[in-house]
Design a protein around this nucleic acid. Sequence first.
DNA 1: GGGGCGCTGTATCTTATGTTACGTATTTTG
DNA 2: CAAAATACGTAACATAAGATACAGCGCCCC
Lengths: 274, 274
Amino acid sequence: MISSIAELISDRIGTMPAGERRAAQTLIANYPLTGLKTVAEFSAAAGVSSPTILRFVARLGFQNYPEFQSALQDELAAQLQSPASRTLNPSSAGSAVSPMLEATLDNMRETFRHLTDKQLADIAARLAERRGKTFLIGGRFTDPLARYMAAHLAIIQPDVYHLAGQESIWRDRLIDMGKRDVLVIFDIRRYQDSLVRFAEKAHQRGVQIILFTDQWLSPIARFARHVIAGRTAVPSAWDSSAALFVVAETLIAAVTRQLEAAGAKRIRDLESLR
Amino acid sequence: MISSIAELISDRIGTMPAGERRAAQTLIANYPLTGLKTVAEFSAAAGVSSPTILRFVARLGFQNYPEFQSALQDELAAQLQSPASRTLNPSSAGSAVSPMLEATLDNMRETFRHLTDKQLADIAARLAERRGKTFLIGGRFTDPLARYMAAHLAIIQPDVYHLAGQESIWRDRLIDMGKRDVLVIFDIRRYQDSLVRFAEKAHQRGVQIILFTDQWLSPIARFARHVIAGRTAVPSAWDSSAALFVVAETLIAAVTRQLEAAGAKRIRDLESLR
DNA sequence: GGGGCGCTGTATCTTATGTTACGTATTTTG
DNA sequence: CAAAATACGTAACATAAGATACAGCGCCCC
């Protein structure tokens, strides 16, 4: 079974004429980058002519050069998105829970790799500045995350509302939303039309939207001021929201830190109310 | 000091107009692959027009699109040649988010280290066997986890109920609970008296309790048939429920797998109801 | 509420990329 | 050793890619 193009090449390199073999060796030497460049650059790197490169990819079974490049990109995408395959942790072999945990840990690392401190700081700052109200809402499976975040934020600052229940209920809350307000939305596949509609209307009213979504980006990204794209793939029938959950906790921690002074007083006040 | 294009983007994303920001978010979401494709494909993925993409790369300081792609390729080449950079992300040293992430990852590893496959399998089996009803409930901050789990379990099997609202409401549900039923409780510090009382009464009725708690164990552990102790310490003012969240997802996956045959049919039926 | 500025998309154009045809060189085989 | 077949490169071609000009629109500020 041949899975990667590199294997395919090393499988057939023996049957290739000299020029094409030089092309193959050049590609393998710094795989797969040379293959992503133009035919002219590839040919120059290999020291052969352009047609030789094209004959080379034709011999590999590709109809044309772009098709070959697409295949390389797909392969690269798979490689970049599952760093698990490259760590190849053998100690965990045979265990049933491990794949799930490993995938989740990878998802988190990968999610944070695409997330800079500055982005998080910006979002936290926006959530901490108390100009307007903060609304949170989520989809079928992600609404608990919205609740979780709301439960914490509501303690350290006023005017934090979780939007629950039926669509018509939140739609009526739109009237209270304006430019100074923030709307935090959780939406992963399969994206919910109702949420998209709601986000659009909120956007039209000037509400700043912070979106938690998956790597394929909910259509709401179109209206969002900030987008957090978490990895969701795990060996399960369901997508995982764990990475988004951790981002949410990180943000909660950051906002709390920023509001330390004001927040501490508020928490004391709350305690005394019990 | 800005070293990678990703950092450059997140540095300037704040000053960008909506369309270009959308391009930026799309690129970051699965970086750097989208940037290696053609302008047309990039624009389609981002849902904007080609010129917007070109203006986007121009704003980043590149003379033209090919120059931008070359920069991405160079970056990718450097990354691929030193695989260490992906396991031990050096850029994150001294960063603000990293302690939070690191602590969370540690918590998860530690949580699962104290959790055997057999324990998880037993719990999953108990949740999958459909003799009685399944109830889920959580505390002030952990109730969203109960909701999350309930949202999934309710899809693959009947008689799954999340207990929400006021204490008096769930107390009244006790009358429906018996020996054949399962109660999943989430309770971490500070443990809630109301939950402890509820657990005790349920236990007296013969309900099997599955407890998600922290490493110091809620008093409910006394009544529980199964106890899952997750690590919660993170550098934040709040405790982290992330490890418990991942255990919950792992259990959801396991139960789903066990109910595969029955569950698949049920999911199809649900789909057809939409 | 009106005027100006800036952003975005459509349509057009230009460039350069991939592709093909053909002639020459090289190797292989009878 | 000769003839045929194969491989390779040069050069011309077609296509698709990136770039640009311009008009419409929304937004913000006065």
